[in-house]
Each structure stands twice: as structure tokens, then as C-alpha cells.
Simulated scan of single mutants.
Amino acid sequence: MSDELDLNGEATEVTDREARSPGVVRCEVCKTQAFKYKCPGCQLRSCSLACSKEHKTSTGCSGKRQRTSFVPLSEFGEGHLISDYNLLEEAAQLAESAQRTRQRTSNAQSAQIAKVRHMQHQARLRNMEWRAAPPGSEARQLNSSCFDAHKRRLMWRVTWRFEGSGYCVTDEKLDEQTKLGDALAAHLKLQPGQAQRHALLKEYLEAGPEHLTLLLKQETRSDLGPSYYRLMPNHTLRLALAQKTITEFPTILVVLPRLL
């Protein structure tokens, strides 16, 4: 008996009669030795593991039977039956996995839609317009703004950009009743272990929150030049955002007097 690769690419036996058949005695790779293996993928005959590997490398053959290819009934055996059964099992598992994935995706999308609608509703109650960025965008993923049902307040993600310094800092959830001046002063407060930050904000610290200008870019202008709202430090965040359009979360520019 000689060997043959089985349905999974493993060695199985080939009959001596087949090995001695005219025209197929020798290995089709080295062409010197009698063949011992037959590739289930392309039926090429080889004499050793080395020749089998060389065949796969040179031809790109996977060495596995095409599980969906036609097999004559006269050649259909137990190995084919097991292979077909496994194929059906794998197909059923893939279908079930796809169904679960679709369900999870649908649930996540429903939750996102509900959150967007709720934010828009709460914004309208505050005389402002809130817009959601496209799904998957950086702003959509970063935004941590939400409605606190217990406090009945919006908690905003607010980015503070200190113009001319290259420094930005973010409040992940800033209470809408917080005064802008108080929130800014918290970021300018000296803290140990932050020498680099203090160096970047030195001019802002010396000027003091009351002498800094707070700007919010207008999102509804149609001309080419940017325009900004000037925000009052003594206003709460809720009052500062009233009658304005915000996409996801506000970015407030902090500007030194000399830069105006």
C-alpha cells in the first residue's frame, strides 16, 4: 500500500495497484521516485513530504479537496460524507454568528439614535441646536456629553484651546451650570508636578481669567472667513451656548489680550 493525502491534507494510503498503474508510477515533482502521495486538491502525485511541500509552494495549491466540487457517486465514500457534513456544520455556525452580529449592530445603532435624539431634544429645551457628527467620525467617538437625569442637567465635553501656546485641555463632563470663568480658572491653577504646563500657560496665568477673551466659532456662517461668538466669563455654560449651533461638543478658544 502507498500513501495519499486525505480530505484535510493528511497522508492516507494509495493502493499498490494504483501506484503501479501505467503513466503514474513516478513522482510528478522530482520524476525519479515512485509516487506515494496524491494531493486531494489537484490530484498531483508526489513521492515524499518534501516534494509535496515543493508542489504546494510552486503552484499555490492548498493541498485540500475543493469541498464544493462535484464527486461522482461511484467515488463517493465515507470521507466525502464526513467532509460534507462538516461543511454544513460550519455554514450553520457562520449563519448563526452573522445573525448575532447583526443583532448586536442593530441594538448599538438603536442606542446611538436614541442618544442623538435625546441630546437634540434637551438642546432645543435650552434654545440651542445640537448636531451629531457622522457615525464613526472622531468627534462622534470622542464626545462624552450626556444628560444627567438625576441632576436634570446637560454635562458637556468642553475643549479649551489656549491660542498661541499649543496647549489644549478637555473637561469630559462639565456641568452646564458652571460659570466659564470658574472652569477656566481651574485649568490655570498652579499644581505641583506640571512645570511644562505652567511654562506654556505663563502668560495666561499672569493675565488672569478676567482679562482673557473666550471665543466660540460660529458654525452656521456660509462665507469663507471664520467668525466667532465672544463668550462672557461670568456666564454659565448653558447661557453661553444658548442661541448657538454646536456639533457634538464646544471648543472654546482662550485668547490673550495682545493677540486680539
Score class of each variant (00 low, 15 high):
W156H: 08
Q109W: 01
C27R: 03
V14H: 03
A111H: 01
E13F: 02
P257C: 07
Q194L: 08
E18N: 12
E4N: 09
R258T: 03
Q177E: 15
S165F: 04
A132D: 11
E203F: 00
Q109L: 10
K179W: 04
E4K: 09
V169D: 15
K56G: 02
E89G: 02
L180K: 02
C51P: 12
S110D: 13
T101A: 15
K64G: 11
Y204K: 03
M1W: 00
G164V: 09
D6T: 09
G181M: 08
E219K: 07
A207C: 15
L5T: 04
R197T: 09
R104C: 07
T178G: 09
R140D: 11
R126M: 08
T101K: 01
A240L: 09
Q196W: 00
L125G: 14
K38P: 02
Y204V: 08
L239N: 11
N86V: 06
Q122H: 02
P72E: 12
S106C: 08
G136Q: 12
L184R: 01
E219S: 13
S144I: 06
C168L: 14
R153V: 02
C42K: 05
S48F: 01
V24D: 13
N107D: 14
K217V: 11
A186M: 10
T12L: 01
N86E: 15
S46N: 07
Q33N: 13
S144H: 11
H80W: 01
S21M: 06
D223S: 10
G164R: 03
T247V: 14
S58A: 12
